[in-house]
Design a binder for these strands. Sequence first.
RNA 1: GGGGGGUUUCCCGAGCGGUCAAAGGGGUCAGACUGUAAAUCUGAUGGCAGUGCCUUCGCAGGUUCGAAUCCUGCACCCCCCA
Length: 356
Amino acid sequence: MIGDPSGKSEERQLLSEETLRANVEGMGRQMRRLLDFDDAERPALLVNNYDWVGPFGFLEFLRDVGKHFPVNVMLTKDSVRSRLERTDSGLSYTEFSYMLLQAYDFAHLRRHHDCELQVGGSDQWGNITAGIDLARRLDGVQLYGMTCPLLTKSDGTKMGKTESGALWLAPERTSPYQFYQYWINLDDADVGKCLRFFTDLGREEIESIVAEHQLDPGRREAQRRLASELTRLVHGDEGLHVARRATEIFFGAEIGELSDAQLVQIFADVPSKGMPVDAIGGEGLSVLDALCAAGLAKSKGDARRTIEQGGGYVNNRRIENVEQRLTSADLASETVMVLRSGKKRYALLRFGGEHD
RNA sequence: GGGGGGUUUCCCGAGCGGUCAAAGGGGUCAGACUGUAAAUCUGAUGGCAGUGCCUUCGCAGGUUCGAAUCCUGCACCCCCCA
């Protein structure tokens, strides 16, 4: 409900209690893939600090926790200072206090769960050390922190930003295919770093992958390996399988000799849309409408522009004419048509069956 | 409470009352080159229709033949003083 001021250039938006509950549950679902919550000895634990901070009275908090925080120290923390130095945005007391909450959380977790190490991105350094200080003052114990550098791409921009938004772990937001494609497309310069950061591969193996990649970067073996490892980690073998199959269909052999059986399997994983079958009967469907419906264009004007510049494709054949209409002759398989914008943005249109 | 500054199209940021759908940059999209890479170059970038129409410049009114540009009120943000 209260956010960390670090990194943000503006006061962050506060979320409602329900939204947060939902977010916490969502995180739990994703963490379950990566951590073992059922281990008999030391199961992973997901806790919500609302459970202990929520009931904490304001006065008690000020008395028991707040008094241990010298304001002059707080002011020197990067997260605070950077915000105060900006002239176009301020820092509310709420955000300023965030550090106290996170620090207290650490102390609380130590008391109740013997938690002694807090890890996080390097932007959390200030908050983590605040927690270490607090626990020492409060309980006389020594806690530890560990941070890792924030991951940025070689061009300085943040990782995980794709053309069409952010990269999500949740399959509903970023399908395994899209997730896989993100890593396949990664800059050469960033592959090694990502292999080290995100995979469990050993150092020698990574080094040999990178070395081989440098010999023949065009094969993008490093990217393939990275994409495979990560897709399996996040979406499991099944997700990886679908992602690969979709990739093979689109970037592999000719499109045209496909069957519904092949396409329908990947249908849900690729941006797609179902349409009534009579859309391609008679006159046929305008290519402009088709691109819009498939989500490859924001508007008809956008679709027109794409096609006029040579970026529109049906079944991997360039659309030459904006006036062109699509009929059943343009289907790639029994019911599915493969549309593409640019070199690598694919979408499917399925005719008949359910539509939306 | 007092004083000052601000709110422009995805973002930043220009913008003489008409020639402003609005400079410039970023981003994004597309093309060329390649390797589904980077860099570079080119084009595009409100909507619908193709030399026209419609909706945009915090919100609501007003002045004007005509406003993003002037006036009034409101909202929000920032800074300084108390």
